[in-house]
Computed example of a mutant assay.
Amino acid sequence: MKYASDFRAIARDALRGKWVIAVIVGLVAALLGAGSDGPRVKLNISDHGANLNVGVAGQTIYSTGGSPHSGIGAFLIGSAIYIVLLALVFAAVYFVLGSIIQVGYARFNLELVDRREPSFDALFAYFPCWKTMAAARLLQSLYVLLWSLLLIIPGIIAGYSYAMTEYILAEHPDLTASEAIDCSKQMMSGNRWRLFCMQFSFIGWNLLSALTLGIGSLWVRPYQQAATAAFYREISGTEQAVDTDPATE
């Protein structure tokens, strides 16, 4: 049985000579919604006027507003319903896109730890299966939310139970969303604490990343994701992976 240090060592070895593409793919995956909630649009209307804020990763990238008598303020107030509808449509599209990219990113990291040549195109390999990928992400979010309504701890446990869903779909896109989630639950039985310990072992790197205003995460995230892919290989018993193209199966 491997430990956190073993998975980190496998990740470092897999990333040797491949850091540049790993950082680029990780950044693109994050921007396209893999593992993130995407841009946030906030429209505030009060007696003093209206303000529109667009943020990404907790940072405001665009902000505008004005009093009810100003041109921009009057426009925001008059167009509020359209702005809300547009934001909802954009959020839905971004959610679906992120679902596809997240599975593609899992495939990229599996190729990495399998010592195959990782491809940037892996991110976009699962567009034909977009319904399954979106359904899997939606069901995971819903289940975690429902468990969290009971107490925080059950929600966290549920999140760890479903943690391998994207890797399973990356290799078996023919499964339904529910089947992939069930496979993840079975696979993670008895392994949730191991995954937690592995993720916790990166706390030092995450703290250093925070000191660099998040810039360090460009390197830490690929390191973590490669280690997680190695973890999946170990608990799924597929460390000797065959060279197949799961997207075309």
Rank of each mutant, 00 (worst) to 15 (best):
G49D: 07
A92H: 05
T64F: 02
T64R: 09
E111G: 10
L27E: 05
S99Q: 09
Y143E: 04
R137A: 01
K42T: 15
L43D: 05
I101Y: 05
L138S: 07
F120Q: 03
D114A: 15
Y143H: 02
L76G: 05
A50G: 04
F120V: 03
T60R: 11
A57S: 10
I101C: 04
T60P: 00
P39M: 14
S119P: 00
L138R: 01
N109S: 03
Y105E: 12
S141N: 08
S36P: 02
G73K: 12
L142R: 01
A11C: 08
D121E: 10
I72W: 06
G17I: 11
H69I: 09
D114N: 12
L142V: 15
L138Y: 03
D114E: 13
A106D: 09
S46M: 05
S99P: 07
G33A: 09
L32W: 08
R107T: 00
G71W: 06
I21S: 10
I83D: 02
L27M: 13
L142N: 03
D47R: 14
V54C: 03
G38W: 06
V89N: 05
G65N: 07
I83V: 15
L138I: 10
Y94F: 15
A57F: 15
Y94M: 11
L32H: 04
G55K: 10
M133N: 05
S79M: 14
A11S: 12
I77S: 08
R40I: 11
V20D: 03
S70Q: 12
K18L: 08
A22C: 09
S46V: 03
Y94L: 02
L31A: 08
V41K: 10
A34H: 05
R116A: 07
V103T: 14
F124H: 01
V28Y: 03
F75I: 11
R107L: 15
A11L: 03
C129T: 08
D114K: 12
V84E: 13
G49C: 09
G58L: 07
Y126I: 05
G98M: 07
I100W: 00
G35W: 10
A135D: 05
G17D: 09
Q140F: 00
L88N: 12
L27R: 08
G38F: 06
T132P: 01
L123R: 06
A87F: 09
N51T: 11
L142C: 08
P68R: 06
A34P: 01
L43H: 11
Q102I: 00
I21W: 03
F120Y: 11
V113G: 02
P39W: 12
G73E: 05
E111S: 14
I81T: 14
R12K: 15
